[in-house]
Structure formats: C-alpha cells, structure tokens
Amino acid sequence: MNIRPIKTRFFKEDEDLVAFVTRHIPKLKDGSIVAVTSKIVALAEGRTSQAKGTRQKAAVIKAESEWAIKTKYVWLTEKDGMILANAGVDESNVDPAGGGASGKLILLPEDSFATAQKLRSSLLQKYKIKKLGIVITDSRVMPLRAGVVGVALGYAGLRGLRDYRGKKDIFGRKLKFTQTNVADSLATAATLAMGEGSERQPLAIIEDASVEFVAQVNKKELLIPLKDDMYAPLFPRKRP
C-alpha cells in the first residue's frame, strides 16, 4: 500500500470541495482511495460556530453530542456512534483571519457518508475511472494510549469491514470474533501521512490497498451498540 499526502493552499470556508480536490489532484488512477480531512469538509459545509469562553464552547460541544461527560482535559462524548473528545469540535488549524483568534470552532461534517458519496460520484466522472474509494478522516484518542489515531467519519466506494468469522486461522482453528476495521485502518494510515500540525496536507492518495470496492456502503457496519461494547462497563448507566 502506498500513501501520498497532498500539500495544498489554505481551504476557505464555503469553498467548493470538488473543485479544490481536482485542482490539487490532477490525475487519479483506477483503484485509488482519496482521504480527505474532515476539517475541509466541515468548512465546505459551513459547519462552524462561534464561542467566547469555555462556557460557550461547552454549550456547543453538548449540543453536538448524544451525551457529554466532563473529564480532566476534555469532554468525553458520543457523536455519530463514536466516542470522541469534545464531539469533534476543534479550534486547531482555524485561520485567525477568519475568526480563529476570536473563538471560532470547526464542527464535524453534517453527514460524512453522504459527502463521501457525492464526492466519489463527481470524481468518478472527472477522472473517468471505475473503482474509487473516499474516506473522510478525523483523529481520536484510544483508552490508555498516548497520541491520536485516525478514524473514518464516513466513506464511500469500499467495504469498511472485513469479516473473518467462520474462517480458519493458520492452524485450522475457526475464528469466532475477528473482524478487521478497514475504514478506520485506512484513515489512521492517511492521518499519519497527512500530519496533525502545520503540514497543510488535507488530502492523501492511497494506492494498492487491499480493499473491496463497492458501489454502495453499509453506513452501520462499523457501529456497535454501547450495551454490547467491551467498554460498556466504563460508562455510567445513566448518561448526563
């Protein structure tokens, strides 16, 4: 698998996402996957908010969350079936000229799966290819692990889950639980290549990845109800 991050100019709020991608990626070969950071997707959708002070920011985070629990450093929240810090609400990499110095916040995209599908349809026509995957990426932290890893907020054109259940391991034992989260694995690899700081690489091209390309994705294939999740005992039964 090869990953090539794409350095770009600054993305402006309400800018056309398809035009931005095609301007910075003039060619794309069949079977590629394009990773797009959620920040520019959110900016394209105008998904920003203004908050003066921690109290207003907390109100925005709670409004974006299914539930929110205050921790030492951040709000631990559930958003779109994922456990995220601050519901993905972020102040980093906000252009000060556009209000970043005065409390501007970037929210998560409204519907990353829908955006990924629309972007895929446009790029299939633009590049005249048949197989193309799109992954909308963000970053998150994992319990008891330092640093962030990538997460796929939405994707299109590829199967997000590889199921090994019922198959045999190298010694012939039947696998009972093993599944590979393909979408988040791609997002993590792309996030590592794109960077989290001043790299200015909101796009990445992934080639020769071991994925199954599909026309339609199952938006719920990666979701697990909290009651069935192995981390369920860590959360209070009654949500705030």
Rank of each mutant, 00 (worst) to 15 (best):
I206Q: 04
V21M: 06
A97P: 04
A116Q: 07
Y127K: 02
G133Y: 01
T77N: 08
I6P: 06
D163Q: 05
L107S: 00
F177M: 02
P96G: 10
G53K: 04
A63T: 01
F10E: 12
D90C: 11
G88L: 05
D111Q: 09
M142H: 14
A215S: 13
P240L: 01
Y155T: 07
K12E: 15
L17K: 08
K29C: 06
A189T: 05
F213R: 03
D208Q: 12
G98T: 03
A63N: 13
I69V: 15
R9C: 09
M82L: 15
F177I: 11
A19I: 06
V94P: 03
N181L: 06
Q50V: 12
K168I: 03
P143H: 12
I83Q: 04
A116C: 10
H24C: 05
K104Y: 04
E110M: 07
N86S: 07
E13M: 14
V214E: 01
K104F: 00
V149G: 08
G99P: 00
E199L: 09
K167P: 01
I69T: 05
W67I: 08
G160L: 07
S65H: 00
G172R: 01
N93L: 12
L84H: 04
I61D: 02
P202Q: 02
V182K: 09
L192Q: 11
D138Y: 09
K176I: 11
V148E: 15
E91F: 04
F213H: 11
F177L: 12
I136A: 02
K227Y: 06
W67T: 03
L223P: 02
T71W: 05
D95K: 06
E13L: 06
K104I: 07
Q201K: 15
V34Q: 01
A51C: 05
K27A: 13
L124S: 09
L161N: 04
F171V: 04
F113W: 09
F10I: 11
T137W: 02
A68W: 04
L43M: 11
D184Y: 09
A193Q: 10
R200Y: 10
A68Q: 02
V18H: 07
S210L: 15
A51H: 05
R140F: 15
T48H: 10
M82F: 13
A152L: 09
I69K: 06
S32Y: 00
Y164T: 07
I3D: 06
K52A: 14
A193R: 02
D228I: 02
